[in-house]
Simulated scan of single mutants.
Amino acid sequence: MPDVQGLPDERGVALDEVGIEGLRYPMLIADGQGVKRETVATVDMSVSVGAEVKGAHLSRFVEVLHAWRDQLDQASALSLAEDVRNRLGSSSARVQMSFAYFVERQAPVTGARSFSEYQCTLSVGASDKGTSFLLKVRVPVTSVCPCSKAISDRGAHNQRGYVTIEVEPEPGAQIWFDELIDVAEASGSSPVYALLKRPDERHVTMAGYDNPVFVEDMARHVAVVLRSDVRVTRFRVRVINEESIHNHAAYAQLGWTATTDHRDV
């Protein structure tokens, strides 16, 4: 059959990205313990197209994704991007996958087990110059207001907060979602659990009250931890509180890129 996309183009215009986006696809994602978790990812895939090439063979994106769908971890994600680049004969390729990532948690007192859900994004690229890798997590936490605690005779207002961390590791360094989730949860007054029995709820409530934090505190906590990690090339953190007694949300954010001195530590 005729391959129209394989024909040459004479307009002399190269394209930075050509691909597919918004594809929903079942995946098996490895967690930090090496256990594979089922999820459904929303996938964007693209390649660069040279000035002399008419178009990309879009069906090949899905073929490559299907071949790698049951073995996704950091190493295989990079191989996936390289496979896309090779299969489509392009100088560069990019793959982004967003999905619900499930981690089994134990309640703090009773030890009751349940799965907590975190929204995660994995972005990988491959080109003639090498590969790129980016992790992003959005983690729910509880935050108790330090000001409210200080001025109130009883109690303090608390709210659901979300800590979003985006990290680019050093080339070859191993960082996975579980570590970033732990950093985010440690920044809040208390983690959020899917399952709590009454002794657990009592513990979480009192622990949060004993550890009040502003959004600024949470953002700074994450920054201190990640700046000291020599595996991190750059990061961005954004913390937002859905305020319980105000008709607005509160947020804090910052970005950071490693210096040469940092990498030499």
Results as ranks from 00 to 15, higher is better:
Met1Ser: 15
Asp9Val: 02
Gly12Asn: 00
Leu15Glu: 03
Asp16His: 13
Gly19Tyr: 05
Gly19Pro: 11
Leu23Ala: 00
Gly32Thr: 06
Gly32Asp: 03
Gln33Met: 01
Gln33Cys: 05
Val35Met: 09
Ala41Val: 10
Ala41Asp: 06
Gly50Met: 03
Glu52Val: 08
Lys54Val: 01
Lys54Thr: 12
His57Trp: 10
Ala67Pro: 10
Ala75Phe: 09
Ala77Gln: 09
Ala81Val: 07
Arg85Thr: 10
Arg87Trp: 08
Ser90Trp: 10
Ser90Glu: 04
Val95Pro: 09
Ser98Cys: 01
Arg105Gln: 10
Arg105Glu: 04
Gly111Asp: 05
Gln119His: 13
Gln119Val: 09
Thr121Ala: 08
Leu122Tyr: 12
Val124Glu: 03
Gly130Ala: 04
Ser132Arg: 10
Leu135Lys: 07
Leu135Trp: 09
Val141Ile: 13
Ser143Thr: 12
Lys149Ala: 04
Gly155Asn: 03
Gly161His: 11
Ile165Arg: 02
Pro169Thr: 03
Glu170Tyr: 09
Asp182Tyr: 06
Ala186Glu: 14
Ser190Phe: 05
Arg198Glu: 01
Arg202Gly: 07
Thr205Gln: 14
Ala207Arg: 02
Asp210Asn: 15
Asn211Ile: 01
Phe214Trp: 14
Val215Phe: 08
His221Asp: 06
Arg227Gly: 00
Arg227Gln: 13
Asp229Gly: 06
Thr233Lys: 14
Ile240Lys: 14
Ala250Ser: 15
Ala250Glu: 04
Thr257Cys: 02
Arg263Phe: 10
Asp264Cys: 10
